[in-house]
Design a protein around this nucleic acid. Sequence first.
DNA 1: CGGAATCCTTCACGATACTG
DNA 2: CAGTATCGTGAAGGATTCCG
Lengths: 137, 137
Amino acid sequence: METTVTLEEPVSAEACRVHMVPITEVLGQVGSKWTMHVIVALATGPKRFSELKAHIGGVSQKVLTSTLRDLERDGLVSRKVTPSIPPRVDYELTAMGQELRGPLGAIGRWAVDNQTRVQAARDRFAHAEDERRRDAW
Amino acid sequence: METTVTLEEPVSAEACRVHMVPITEVLGQVGSKWTMHVIVALATGPKRFSELKAHIGGVSQKVLTSTLRDLERDGLVSRKVTPSIPPRVDYELTAMGQELRGPLGAIGRWAVDNQTRVQAARDRFAHAEDERRRDAW
DNA sequence: CGGAATCCTTCACGATACTG
DNA sequence: CAGTATCGTGAAGGATTCCG
């Protein structure tokens, strides 16, 4: 019994919804504003908290902490504490985190390859909106 | 001059951030709670508004409308109005929308393939949390 | 240094009611 | 049928302060 539906051949609306649950969950996590940045930053190797914060830039300490917690919770990132003075905490992609780089890279490449097309579409849309506004007057 | 960095070989922190912009934007959109559902629903062919709503299930018409607007705005979905009585509106993936199915499918497959591993990691994490709580007392 | 705690703002989402 | 208009809510994110 094959249950790999995803984006190819939906069976029923209900079966499709059930299948979407883990996907939605993962995307909700990945779509979170900073998750992608963290994974990219860690893709080249382990980093300390302050290194991550500096590398990413523009993220608050609180949000970075919670992002890292979520990733650790899901087993994508490992957290290694060295209780020295001052303390030292290293973050690193786990094996599972490394595996996510592939699929994430596919999205990333699509985004980079298509940003001009998306921008053009947005311009067209904004322009069409203007025209409708003009017609209304 | 090659500028395809994404997830493979970061150059500088700044160059990396610049590259992340379109990716973050796309992921923010895709990570939006219902975008994925809409694309999956439309992957098999055009659908009317009410068909989409019924197929997805659990989405309010307001949110579905704005989700579709965003997708239309970015040129991923086309909207065809038939001014009959009652009115009829068909939504369909554009060529660009179709192309997104590949990368999105990669994420989807990863999510489905790894949901048990993620769940196990969460259980471990929750268990470790409990133990720390017990130590505190 | 790496956080936890607190406060505050914004916004996505949802429920409801109304319209062409 | 396919929206638009309004109102309400919770959660995400950000700034700041304090702690081991």
